[in-house]
C-alpha cells in the first residue's frame, strides 16, 4: 500500500475481499474497522525518512483465525497501540479524535506488537466461524 491516506480505502476493501468467505458478518465488520484504523494510524503517525516507501501488509489464514500484519516503515519510532489505546467508554463523546486505537483493541480478538526483522509489526487476529474451527 502507498503511504497515503487516499490509498487506505482501496487497500481495506481489497483486504476485506480476501476474507469475505472466511469471517462471519460480525467478524468482517471488525476486520474492516481494524484494518482501516490501523492503516490510517500508520499513514498519519509513523514517521519515516522515505515517505515514498510502500507499507507492507500480510494477511494470513490459519485453521482458526485470520491474522492481519501491518509493518511499520523501517526506522519509524516504536508505537505500541496497546500502551496508548483509550477505552471507548472513556473517550469524551464530543471529542473529534481519539477513538481509533480503542476501536482496534475492542474489535480485534488479539493484538500484538513486536519486532519482525528490521521493523516493528502490528499483528491483529480475528477468529473464524466456530463451525470452521
Amino acid at each position: 500500500m502507498q503511504n497515503d491516506l487516499n490509498d487506505v480505502d482501496r487497500t481495506v476493501v481489497s483486504l476485506k475481499a480476501f476474507v469475505d468467505e472466511v469471517l462471519d458478518q460480525s467478524g468482517l465488520f471488525k476486520f474492516e474497522v481494524c484494518a482501516s484504523e490501523a492503516l490510517t494510524n500508520l499513514v498519519k503517525h509513523a514517521k519515516t525518512d522515505d515517505t515514498t516507501a510502500p507499507i507492507k501488509i500480510e494477511l494470513t489464514e490459519t485453521p482458526a483465525a485470520v491474522i492481519l500484519r501491518v509493518f511499520d516503515p523501517v526506522g519509524a519510532a516504536r508505537f505500541d497501540l496497546r500502551d496508548h489505546a483509550q477505552s471507548l467508554d472513556d473517550v469524551d463523546p464530543l471529542a473529534e479524535s481519539g477513538r481509533g486505537l480503542g476501536l482496534i483493541m475492542q474489535c480485534a480478538d488479539h493484538a500484538d506488537y513486536a519486532p519482525q526483522g528490521d521493523r516493528m509489526c502490528l499483528s491483529l487476529k480475528f477468529s473464524k466461524l466456530e463451525t470452521d474451527q
Partner: peptide, 16 residues
C-alpha cells in the same frame, strides 16, 4: 457503506 473514527469525528465537529 462504511464510516471510520475520522468520519465520526467529523460528524461530531459538525454537531459542535
Amino acid at each position: 457503506s462504511f464510516v471510520d473514527s475520522s468520519g465520526l469525528g467529523a460528524l461530531v465537529g459538525v454537531l459542535k
